[in-house]
Design a protein around this nucleic acid. Structure first.
Lengths: 214, 214, 214, 214
DNA sequence: AATGAATGAGTGTTCATTCAT
DNA sequence: CATGAATGAACACTCATTCAT
């Protein structure tokens, strides 16, 4: 109750974060082009000019916003398999769960979707995303797969390709959430889908089921 | 005098198609917002005003373009399993091949990607696409799956979920092509990916592993 | 009464001229920076967007306007001494009269004044003006001077410097008109000034005073 | 405690002068409109807000800057003919030299040029300049001319008009320096021009050359 | 006195849409 | 049918000015 509303001059350090958060929400509602700087400013509770104190252009805001949301994505992924004790199959299970959580976080998933949509107009950003997010996720998965193959848990397969197949349903589920759910009659629970995926996937890569090759 | 070719008015019936073709190419290069009516007109070789003789707005052009590209997608899919003689596994193989061809056709794949990108701004179109393209594809696949289950070829699984898992790598491959390939160092051949997918998928749904091998 | 006002679509060919005329008047009232595109458009009786059909930017309008007003300046000057019959002194007299007329035309004089004011921001334009207008005027005058020297009418002097001295009062009179007259208590008639200038100037360059007097 | 140097506030009395000096340099580089308060502040080594402690607006800064540069102009001029002993011709010679020096001082000459350029937007300032600088210079010259006429050194002429003719080459030389020199191929040395000017001018106003009036 | 973060009115430019020809 | 000149609403970005600290 001491000082409820201060009109001017707030913490300069917190500003960029607030702006990018507002930017994310606005971009994800309207897309890049349909978002006006005024929208972002209003949502962040500042004036339009203030944005330009921190970012030189709308594109710069977009890029900074994407970049700021890369790290959480990556960290959550990598944290997901930090546990070294488990079997490779268990680690894949953990990964599916972790990715499933990410895929269920609408704000987080909006970022790759925006990257997808704007890749043509922001090639540099697409490259960055490709390498720093997707590339790392693929490495993560193929690392687990290769370990599993080495241990004899999994069949010998092309790890790079298989990693892609492992991730595909997660990616589709994520995009699905942000694209068709508001329009869907009978949404499929992503958890069910991913549980089945894990089951089928493990079965398909399992080292020769009954006793191996004769 | 009865000759068909008239110098002034080029086939007026062909106009809408030419416009939509030009629209598709422009939208896929720049996205919806960054495409100017002038761009489309120039590419179609007409004046800007002419577009408005056929479509009342830029949004209408976009929607018509999407709609016009629904049918080819659907038809190619449905043609892919017209052959009733084959086993369910063979029909899935055919489907993967067909989808793989679609996914390799950059112009065709651009359409779902645009729908994805603009779903927030064109909810009606998203709904339409969800039902008329994706819905049909899912039905197609789950039909085959159910037949295979009924015949004992496949295990009993939730056909709706499994159909999604069947399609996921195809979708991801398609999006990948249009998004990251211009930015990719070492592109993965989609055909390799889909071949492996089919292999793993069939293995994972095969009825009772023990007796499954022919 | 047949068709008093046509709202749209007028002669495309006349437009650039109308626009530049409106631009000149607005620039001369407010200067380059304080002139808004809306001002020019309103004065030309078109909408702001129309200007951009003909010129890509405000700077381009400015440059085109300056360029369009070069020719009249130059032509009036050069026409002024087309007559080959006269003595060099008479030709200088004609030049002073001609320059005096130009200097009295407020719209015409506004152009060099704007060039002067914006020379720092439009160096290319300054260079152009220096060469194509001022340079030609100087050549004109020094040509007459050299002819007069060759004929023995004038003393031997540095023609380039002397030409500058001949033009200086004309230039000052011109700038004076556009700068201080709206602020002046007792304006000096430029004609009186230039008449005296001619008298003093001819006297100062006359060949040998002794025989020069009639 | 009585020591003059205080670390925090640098001589607060010197501030306005420093600001105006920075303002002059910035205005003369970019003109009034294109100069930003930030530019001036940066050049003066203070923050933007500080300027507003001394001047209420950008226009006020401009006007103060012009006003602050009046005095040096005037004083140098008036000092130039303080010497009462000399002949009128010598005093004109001194004036030309003095004016020539002023005209060669790019910073000083920038001021009248800015006044010229902004006269339309700052009429009050134009009036002030007209009276306090130009008016005094004209009085100075016409005073000398009248004295010379009274002494029989010079012919009887309209002193007001003749004074203008005396100053015109100086003014043109000054403007030339600030406008076209950065753009010039072969600059004319102002000293040469003014020397010739003085020579011709004195000759043109000299009391009747051979024997004078009968 | 000095700062510099914040403001918001102002303006150049774009572009979907209209319509006289 | 077709054109393309014209429109005007919309928006990104700027910058003089304010004011809490």
């Amino acid at each position: 109750m001491g000082s409820p509303a201060r009109p001017r001059l707030r913490r300069k350090e917190a500003r960029p974060g607030e702006l990018l958060s507002a930017a994310l929400d606005t971009f994800r509602e309207k897309g890049f082009a349909a978002t006006r700087m005024d929208d972002i400013a209003a949502r962040a509770g500042v004036s339009k000019g203030t944005i330009y104190l921190y970012y030189p252009s709308k594109e710069a805001v977009f890029e900074a916003m994407v970049r700021a949301n890369l790290l959480p994505n990556i960290e959550r992924m990598e944290a997901a398999i930090a546990d070294e004790e488990r079997s490779s199959a268990d680690r894949l299970r953990l990964l599916v769960t972790a990715f499933g959580e990410i895929a269920g976080d609408a704000r987080l998933v909006a970022v790759p979707k925006l990257v997808l949509a704007e890749a043509g107009n922001f090639p540099e950003m697409a490259r960055f995303y490709r390498h720093e997010v997707i590339g790392r996720a693929l490495s993560l998965v193929s690392g687990v797969l290769e370990a599993g193959m080495a241990h004899g848990e999994f069949r010998r397969l092309d790890a790079a390709l298989t990693a892609r197949l492992f991730l595909a349903p997660v990616i589709v589920a994520a995009l699905w959430q942000t694209t068709f759910v508001p329009v869907e009659d009978a949404p499929v629970p992503p958890a069910d889908l991913l549980r089945l995926h894990l089951d089928l996937f493990l079965r398909s890569i399992a080292a020769d089921a009954s006793g191996g090759a004769p």
